[in-house]
Design a protein around this nucleic acid. Sequence first.
RNA 1: GGGCGCUUAGCUCAGUUGGGAGAGCACCAGCUCGACAAGCUGGGGGUCACUGGUUCGAGCCCAGUAGCGCCCACCA
Length: 853
Amino acid sequence: MSAPRSGPPAAEAGPRQVDRFDPATVEPRWIEAWQNAGVGHADPDSDLPPYSIAIPPPNVTGALHMGHALNNTIQDVLVRSHRMAGYETLWICGTDHAGIATQAVVEKALAAEGISRQELGREAFVRRVWEWKEEYGGRIIGQLKRLGCTLDYGRERFTMDEGYVRAVLEVFVSLHEKGYIYRDRYLVNWDPGLRSAISDLEVEDREVTDTLVRIAYPLTDGSGELVVATVRPETMLGDTAVAVGPGDDRYRHLIGRTVTLPLVGREIPVIADEHVDPQFGTGALKVTPAHDPNDFEIARRHDLPRVGVIGEDGRMTADAGERYAGLTPAEAAERVVEDLGAQGLLRGSEPYTHTVPFSHRSGARVEPLVSLQWFCDMTRLAAPAIAAVEEGRVRFTPAKWGDVYLDWMREIRPWCISRQLWWGHQIPVWYRGEESYVGREAPEGEGWERDPDVLDTWFSSALWPFATLGWPERTPELERFYPTRVLSTARDIIFLWVARMVMMGYEFMGQEPFADVAIHSVVQAPDGRRMSKSLGTGIDPMDEIERHGADALRFGLLMMSSTQDVRFSQDRIDQGRQLVTKLWNAVRLVIERGGRARAEPAGAATLADRWIASRVADAIERSGAHLARYELAPLADLTYHAVFDDYCDWYLELLKAGEATPEMAGAALEQLLALAHPLMPFVTEECWSRLPGAGGLLAEHPPPTAPGPRDEAAEAELARVQEEVNALRGWRAQRGISPRRRIVAEDPHPLTGALANVAPAGDASGLESRVLLRTRSMSVGLEGEEVDAGGEIERLRGELATAEGELARAERKLADEGFVERAPAHLVDAEREKAARYAAERETLAARIAALG
RNA sequence: GGGCGCUUAGCUCAGUUGGGAGAGCACCAGCUCGACAAGCUGGGGGUCACUGGUUCGAGCCCAGUAGCGCCCACCA
C-alpha cells in the first residue's frame, strides 16, 4: 500500500542522511595520531623480540608510483602485524641518492635555465643537486606517510648522509685492501649520452635493423683479397686482424699471411680463432679489439694491439685518421662506405636485424670501448652469498627466484663500479704523478688529486641493511636489528640490488642481511603495457588515495598482488572502498545495538554467537598462515569475506533478528578490526576509536584472538540455516513473493525462521498437499495459496529431471569398480549417500506429480 | 641461443597436497525493511589454449603444439 509520493519538491528528500566515512578527512588525523604516539618508533633497548625491515629506498628524484605503493603496503602489513603481535618492530626509512637519475633531473632543470653542468663547475653543480635533494627529497616520504606506512621516520637515512659516506669509504678501502677492487683498462659499456661507463646490468638489448656491408681486404702480397662482413664499417679503421675459423678450408692457406687494411694502409695478420662461425657472413671476421667484446677477447688470445677509433665523447678519434676524426660513428660509417666504394672494395650489402646494446639510463646506443675504470671482482664475494641461498639461510618467495639468483651468481663477472658523474660517492683514491693512494681521507702532503669518478649507485645501496643501522659503528640498533627479517621487492632488482646486499652482508657483517626475499608482482597499466610516465600509462597512487582513500588503494593493491605481473584493476580499488564502507556501517550498527569493545560475553552464547566466534577463529588462523608465506592477496580476500559474508551478511542479520548478543557482536567486531587493521589501518583505527569501551590505538592493540573456540557443530548447524535461507530467497525471487510475506514450513530451523520470515506450519500434514519448496531439511508452503497445478507440475518435472540426472551421475560413479575400490572411502560413501538421497527425492517428486496430475 | 612464466566467466584475476570450477567488476531481475543505494536479495554466464599420456578420476601431474610475456646470452 504505497501511495505515490507527492507534494512540494522540498518533501522529496533524497536518501536519508547517513553518517558516511570520509577518508580525506579521517585519514590524515590518524597519520598524526600514530606519529604522536610513536607508533613507528623502534627502541633498541626493548625486551621484545626484534622484527626489522629495511625499505627499498626510493630515489630522491621520485614520486610514489604504483610499484612503490604496492611494495610499501606489503611491508606495512608485515610491520603492523608484527608490531601488534608483540615484536619490537623497526621499519628502516630512507631515500637513495640515485646517482645517474638525480644528476640527469638536475641537469635537465639547469638546461631549462640555459646552463650546463660544465659551465657551473663540479662543486657548484653538486651544491645544486643537494639543494634539489633538500627540496624534493622529502616529498616521497610524505607520500609514504599518506599511504599509512609506519616507518621509523625519526631514523630517516640517506645514501649520502654523513654516516653513510663513512660506511661507503670503509667498504671501498676494505675491498681494495683485499684486492677485490682494482683499476684496469678494459672494454666497458660506454654510454655516449651520459659520457660514463655503465655496468652490464644497465644495458638493455634492442632489436635494430642495420646494413651488413661486405668489404674486400686485399692480401698484402697482391695475390687476392679476403672479404669480411660488418654492420659497423667505421670500426674497420680500428681493425688489427682478420680472423677465420681454424677448420675453414676456404681460408686455411691464408692463416699467418697479412692483408692491408683499406683506407688505413695498416698491414694486419690473418689469424685462426674458434670464435669465428664459418657459416656466418663470409666466414672471415674483422677484429676490432677496442670496440667489440668478442674482438677484445680474441685480441687477448692472440696478443693483438688495440686501436681505439671512437672516443669517450662518442666521436671518431685521431687514431681513426684525419679524414674521419671528429665525425660521429654514423657519419664516419657513411664516409667509410663511400670511400671504399670509390676504391672498388665493396662486395655488396644487405639489411641485417640483430640485437644491439642500449643504455637503460640515457637510451643511447652503447659504445663498447676500452677505458680506464675501477672494477670489483665478485667471485670471492659471491661464494657465501651462493651458499646462503643453496642452504636456505636466505629464502626467496616464490622459490623459483632463488634459482634465477643462483644462475646469475654462479656466472658472476667483474662489476664496473666507477661512473664518470659528479653526483655520488667520489672514489676515495688520490693521485700524484705516478703515485696513487687509497684511503678514508686525503693523504698528507701537497699535490694530491682525487679521482674524479663516483661510485655506481648500487655500490652504496648494497650496504643499506647495515649502513642504515650505523655500521661501521657497532650501534645498539645494529646489534639489535641486524639481520633484518625480509626484503620485499619486485623481481627487477634481484641482481642489481638484492644479490649485492647479500654479498656485502656476508662480507662485512658475516651474516645475511635478511632471511626472506619476498618477490611481488610488477603492476602494469590496465592495458598490459608498462606503467610509465613517458608512455602516458602511469596511474598516480596519490590520485587514487585522493579519490578513494589510502585504505581502498592498499586493499586493492593487495588483492591484485600476486607472484606474477598483474594489470592494474580499478575494480579492486573499488572493492577496497566497499569494504571500508562496510566496516564503517557495521560499527554503526553494533554501537547502536549496545556492542562494546573488550566485552565479556555475559550470558550463554547463542548459536549465532558460537558460530561467529568459530568463523573469526578460522579467519585468524588462516590469515596467520598466509602472512607467514607472504601471500597477501589471499589474506586480503579472506579478510574481505570474513567481514562481508560472515559478519555482516549473516551474523549482523542474526543480531538484528535478536539471535545474537551485543557482547559477542562487539567482541567479534573488535577482533575483525584487529585482523583488518594491518591492511586498512585508517578505517579500522577510526572504527575502533568510536567503539564504546575501546581505549588506546588499534595500532597498538594485541593481535586478533578468537572470541571463542572453533565450533564444528555450530558451523554445521549454521550451514543448514544458510542452505534453507538461500533456498527460500531464491524461491521467493523466482516466484515474485515479497520477503515480507510470511510463509510456512515444516520444521524450519529457528534461525531460518528469523532470517527468512518463515513460520512453522501448524499442521504439517496439511502442508504436505501444498508443498512448494523442499530443501534437504524442510518443506515449504504458502499459506492461503492454492497451488496452480499446471505450473506446479511443470516445476516439479524440472526438479525431477535434475534429481534423475544427479542420480544417474552418482550411480555411474558407483558402477565404476575402479572408483569404488581405489577412491578414498569417504568419497565413495558420499557418493552412496547422494545416490540414496536422489533416489528418495525422485520417488517423492514422482508421487507429488502424480497427486497433482 | 638458453631459461622462466602465462593462456580459467564479457573484463581483471584466484584456484595450497588430483575427488562435482570461484571472486570482484560488468550484465539481467527484484527490493528504500532504521547499519550500509558508496546498499540489499536473487539470477544468467566457462570445451579451464590445443593434442596426447598417466590415473578409478586431471584446471591441477607428464610430454608435445600454438600464442603472449619476461629474464639471461660475446656471432660480425
